[in-house]
Design a protein around this nucleic acid. Structure first.
Ligand SMILES: [Zn+2]
Length: 228
DNA sequence: AAGATTTGACCATT
DNA sequence: AATGGTCAAATCTT
């Protein structure tokens, strides 16, 4: 029924747990192609305690399944409005939805330096697996960045989804995480390749018009073998 | 029959 | 002992 919007990948649920403090259980998913293609990407979905239509989604690992043709994430299209969310912390960056997409698609993102977009764009589907080769693609540094993008989706039957995409993007240098928002990644230490968490709001209250659905993505990278 | 979900047991950490 | 994450058998869906 409702879950966070589709992120374009296909996942297989392998567990669910009640988490202390949370009113809803957390679902554990791993890439459908784990065995067939050895893809180790996983994600966790947790419905937010307070905002009922918010979901925190945490991605871990990158997809190495070049096969999965990822469908376009969620709804389609285009849209136009964006809403800045209240939230906020980060600086908003206007253009870059693509980024998001990429993010979502999991193909990494990170840019090295600090800043910006341009580079981000490069990360494209072309290369795929980071697994082995550390560096290159992914940034050698582990910085993690977070972005948020709002998205709307109506549920019920008709789904019109309008969505906006404004995103915020923030990067921080090695190690520190500062996303205030909502989640925390607990320790990042060992070997997590990459974690991305996103909170997506899904359906909203049908009637009320506003929700600002927002989706937030955060992710953390660990040094593949790297440094930092 | 094959693939996906559900769900409690089981394991690792703290 | 309490938590969070994963496994796997039973079950449901294609
Ligand atoms: Zn995958």
């Amino acid at each position: 029924m409702e879950g966070p919007l589709d992120d374009g990948y296909s996942w297989r649920k392998y567990g669910q747990k009640d988490i202390l403090g949370a009113k809803f259980p957390r679902g554990y998913y791993r890439c459908t192609y784990r065995h067939t293609h050895g893809c180790l990407a996983t994600k966790q979905v947790q419905r937010s305690s307070e905002d009922d239509f918010l979901f925190d989604v945490t991605y871990r690992g990158v997809h190495t399944c070049n096969h999965c043709l990822q469908r376009t994430p969620t709804p389609s299209p285009k849209e136009e409005n964006l809403i800045q969310n209240q939230a906020s912390k980060p600086q908003a960056h206007p253009h870059q939805q693509q980024l998001l997409e990429q993010l979502k698609t999991g193909l990494r993102v990170k840019t090295e330096g600090f800043n910006f977009d341009e580079q981000l764009l490069e990360s494209s589907p072309s290369f795929s697996f980071p697994s082995t080769p550390p560096n290159c693609i992914k940034p050698h540094n582990n910085l993690f960045s977070s972005a948020s993008m709002p998205e709307n989706q109506l549920m019920g039957n008709n789904s019109t989804t309008t969505s906006a995409e404004s995103n915020y993007f923030s990067l921080s240098p090695c190690g520190v995480n500062n996303f205030a928002g909502g989640l925390n990644l607990q320790g990042f230490d060992t070997e997590i390749a990459e974690i991305i968490s996103a909170a997506a709001s899904t359906t909203n209250s049908p009637m009320l018009g506003m929700d600002f659905p927002m989706e937030q993505i955060e992710f953390e990278t660990d040094f593949p073998f790297g440094f930092c």
